Amino acid sequence: MIFSMIGLIGGLTLLIVLTMRGMNLLIAAPLSTLFLAVFSGIPLFPQLVGDGDPNMLGNYMQGFSGFVANWFIMFLLGSIFGKVMGDARAADSVSKFVVDKLGTKYAIMAVVAACAILTYGGVSLFIVGFSVFPLALSLFKQANLPRRFIPATLAFGSVTFTMTSAGSPEIQNWIPIEFLGTTAYAAWQVSAIVALFMIVFGYWWLKKIIYRAVAKGESFDVREGDPVVEERELPNPLLAAIPLLVVLVISFIFHDSLGTSALIIALTSGIVAAWALNRKYLDNVWESASGGDNGCAASHYEYSCCCWIRSSCSANNGLYGSG
């Protein structure tokens, strides 16, 4: 059990370190899983075990192919929806509206709120980052806040409470449905309390560390080549936000009857709504779809690698294997 725990924690740590240092995920993931398999006592090849017995290669392929089969369409539609929202400038319009309303005085809150609205509406993280980062940079510059905290602010607004809160169309909230037999709105009362705690505590802590740095003399660091907020025509923010509401409403209507398949209808409806309401700003919807497909491939492989580690670990009965 001790060695299995070391393998699990070490494998995940190795995956994070290698990818953070720039290693291609196609290489980092197999190395991390190999580390896990060795420490957990899992044979590497199916030829080394009997029929049906666990092995690293076989269990990884099962987890990888199973995940692709179950979730590829959701990833594809989610990526296309985010790309269409980005290319149609709808994501820019929504984020700029929120930032303008809150202003420099509430710079941190404005960035968090803009990210939260977009991600809870189903827009992919890549699009949220590209849409909000220039606005965050401008706000932090005007408020003279240390720029090194911009990534933390973007991350807090986009990858915390909005990812797992009840009703979120993000894939992290929908993957457990088929395994737990629940819905996207399961235990929404508890989810609301947890989300509120994350918002309040996270925002308090974020402000605390930023203003502590300011008190020590840190300020905004201007760098050559910083992106600027372009002055260009944007869609009406209310019209731009409608596709986000469409995704949420459609997923709510069909989540009981269709389960995870409700997300397919919801995201497809969001794509159609984004195109119909903002087609004036969308040069070529098929180019956006192609761009979304490329983003889907990258995102899908990242999640599949996590399934690789999970399936390899479960092949040895989780943390209770040999060792």
Rank of each mutant, 00 (worst) to 15 (best):
F220L: 04
A240H: 01
Y185W: 15
Y211G: 01
V229R: 08
R232E: 12
L239V: 00
V229W: 06
A186D: 08
K216I: 04
P243D: 00
E231P: 00
A186R: 05
A186I: 05
R212K: 15
F252L: 12
G202K: 07
P235Y: 02
L238C: 05
L180S: 10
P237K: 02
Q189Y: 10
Y185G: 03
I250D: 03
I210L: 11
V214A: 12
P227S: 10
W205D: 10
F197N: 02
A215W: 01
F197M: 13
V190R: 01
T182F: 02
V214R: 15
R232F: 01
E218N: 06
E233R: 03
L180T: 15
R232Q: 11
F201S: 07
A241M: 09
M198G: 06
F254K: 09
E233S: 04
R223A: 09
D256Q: 15
L234A: 03
A215P: 06
E218V: 04
T182L: 06
A192V: 11
E231W: 05
Y203V: 07
Y203G: 02
G217A: 13
E224G: 08
W205S: 15
A215S: 13
V194Y: 01
M198S: 10
A240N: 00
R232V: 12
A241S: 13
V214C: 13
I193G: 10
G181L: 02
D256H: 15
V214M: 12
D221A: 05
Q189C: 02
W204D: 03
V246R: 03
V222W: 03
S219R: 08
P227T: 08
K216V: 05
W188D: 10
Q189D: 13
I199V: 14
I199Y: 12
L245H: 00
R232D: 03
E231Y: 05
V247R: 10
L180M: 14
A186K: 05
W188A: 11
S219F: 02
L180G: 09
S219H: 06
I242D: 06
V249A: 15
R223E: 07
I253K: 06
I242E: 07
L244P: 11
L196R: 05
I253W: 10
Y211C: 07
D226P: 00
W205Y: 14
I253M: 13
I210E: 10
R223Y: 07
